[in-house]
């Protein structure tokens, strides 16, 4: 009797979490997986096709072109963004800035702007016809390249995302710096270390865990790029294809193409890839942590 009661106590604590977890987390994944095993056609209705949708996804050049684009984005944008965030965090933490509170808030502020609004705002600035770029061209007789052209649009999106997330990553890094015991700095100074030496020998090692978390969030964010291209597409429909990013492609397949089944397969493939990459980065980060 007592044994039974004790085991139920555990469930009572875990139950609310497990219920929500099952409902909002396991159920959508299971349902998406279930969807991905079927194919619904306008002619012929719905049939069970096993893993055909996955086979199609693996051989789908549009999917891989979308994947290549976000991979390039990840390789270029994330290091730049994290480097800028690191600089900002170190600058604030150095204690040598006037008005750190203001600086911190103003760098963080873009993160508080909803992504859709940010994309729209930047879209208007990027406009070479009626936007800021167009006005600059008119006012100074310039011919600036169109940021929304097919060649430059990925770069322009990278700029928006960097603007949005530098402050967020800065906060992650800054809070990691705040927990460093100040006596370490004092000891270093007594030993004759300069500021750069302190950054290199104390602050950067202290930041490793936070950097890893920020990197993993950024990897997930890059693979899930959606808002910015989806909104800028209204302004540049010929530069941003419907398969510009994997998520945009999945969205388009679902809502324009009525291919919920294939879209679910794409989402699962992309989820697995994201998981593998995030896991690889985590493992590598942990191994380096163990070595030092």
């Amino acid at each position: 009797m007592a044994v039974t009661r004790r085991s139920w106590t555990g469930w009572r604590f875990a139950g609310p979490f497990l219920a929500v977890f099952a409902l909002v987390y396991v159920a959508p994944i299971a349902y998406s997986f279930y969807l991905s095993l079927f194919r619904t056609r306008l002619i012929g209705g719905t049939t069970f096709v096993g893993f055909d949708n996955y086979v199609q996804a693996v051989g789908d050049p549009q999917f891989w072109s979308a994947f290549g684009r976000v991979a390039l984005f990840l390789a270029v944008q994330v290091p730049i963004m994290l480097f800028l965030a690191l600089l900002a965090a170190l600058a604030i933490d150095s204690g040598r800035l006037y008005g750190t509170g203001f600086f911190r808030i103003s760098v963080f502020l873009p993160y508080a702007v909803p992504a859709a609004v940010a994309a729209l705002m930047w879209g208007f600035m990027y406009g070479a016809q009626f936007g800021l770029v167009g006005d600059l061209n008119d006012a100074f007789g310039l011919s600036l390249p169109d940021p929304l052209s097919a060649e430059l649009v990925l770069l322009s999106i990278g700029n928006i995302v960097t603007w949005e997330f530098v402050g967020y990553n800065m906060l992650i890094l800054y809070s990691a710096l705040r927990v460093v015991n100040p006596s370490l700095y004092e000891a270093a100074q007594i030993d004759g270390a300069g500021q750069l030496r302190i950054v290199w020998a104390i602050k950067l090692p202290a930041l490793r865990g936070a950097l890893l978390v920020a990197t993993i969030f950024s990897i997930i964010g890059s693979f899930h790029l959606f808002n910015e291209p989806a909104i800028l597409r209204n302004l540049a429909p010929n530069a941003i294809t419907t398969y510009f990013t994997p998520n945009l492609y999945a969205y388009w397949l679902s809502f324009a193409g009525q291919r919920f089944d294939y879209s679910a397969a794409i989402a699962i493939v992309m989820g697995v890839i994201t998981m593998v990459v995030a896991y690889a980065v985590q493992l590598r980060g942990m191994r380096r942590g163990a070595l030092s």
């Binding site: 994944i29 990897i219 679902s254 992309m270 994201t274």
Partner: peptide, 8 residues
């Protein structure tokens, strides 16, 4: 990561 993908 997986669950965020699946939202789409």
């Amino acid at each position: 990561a997986l669950s965020m993908s699946l939202l789409a």
